[in-house]
Design a protein around this nucleic acid. Structure first.
Lengths: 150, 150
DNA sequence: GCTTGACCTCAAGTTCACTTGAAGTTGTAG
DNA sequence: CTACAACTTCAAGTGAACTTGAGGTCAAGC
């Protein structure tokens, strides 16, 4: 089993080396040794990183993800937890669909100004209400799509 | 036309007074005078705040929203811009739906461990790819649902 | 044996949208 | 008149997830 250095892991995963170091510091991934100063990773870290990406995409924080990763690099996610997150996504999706439909309407609405369009005004009220109404959610970064420098 | 003080605006809009001051500082809203030190707002600021909430819900930053508000407190949003944001939401929605379906499956999948479920593994690959593939997006706070202290 | 460049550590900085805290001012109730 | 609650300003802090910078180390190639 050949080990990968951080540059290789970064290249194959598309995650910046600084982020990999950060993940290791946080306990999300593990390096298995050093060559000189340089970290070495097992190839399975790539699968682990995929898992982390999935967690992030689903809206879990890194801390939550950490708690789902068992020491040995395997995962221990309860099915309940997954179902709960799916429900959460469902409500996000419904909200976004309402927004999208509203925006779509406003974009092609014939009212002279948006403020005169009843659908748009309804949207505004929905948004204002949405700020308070739906079950509390933290900012959660969705689909960061970080692009790397070089 | 009776003017509202900041406490009243806060109460009616559900937005913290500190946030209202912050919005004013940023040029998103305007106070029309003072009684003593205290800011006074026109009632239409409430509609303005709804507009801001809508923009935030659609994923615009405060800066972008500022650029859509014409000086007089009316808006100047191009229909193209709305349509573009609707398209963006659409792609977000598709992505979230894929995630939700995957999570839903994993939650009731009969594989002994998630890592042995092919659907889950496919999800992981999708998430890992999603980090690089889809058109770049900034973290954007979605559905903050800030709750107020008191 | 020396240079080079890729890595290392650690602290501090970034972004966004606010919040919090300290210290000051003011209209109003008593 | 005085106390007080409710506002005010301004600076600094928050949290998430990293990035950036300064200064250091090391294996490999010439």
């Amino acid at each position: 089993m050949k080990l990968l250095d951080i540059a290789e892991v970064s290249r194959q995963s598309g995650i910046a080396a600084s982020a990999l170091r950060f993940y290791e510091e946080k306990g999300l991934i593990l390096s298995v040794g050093r060559r000189g100063l340089k970290r070495l990773f097992e190839p399975k870290v790539l699968e682990q990183l995929g898992l982390i990406a999935l967690g992030r995409a689903a809206g879990f924080t890194l801390e939550e993800i950490t708690s789902m990763l068992a020491p040995a690099g395997k995962l221990k996610i309860s099915r309940d937890r997954l179902a709960a997150k799916a429900d959460e996504l469902d409500s996000d999706i419904r909200y976004l669909i309402a927004m999208r439909n509203g925006l779509r309407h406003a974009a092609r609405c014939s009212a002279p100004s948006h403020m005169e369009c009843p659908t748009f005004r309804k949207l505004i009220r929905a948004a204002a209400a949405g700020l308070l109404a739906p079950e509390g959610k933290k900012p959660g970064a969705r689909r960061s799509g970080r692009e790397r420098k070089s």
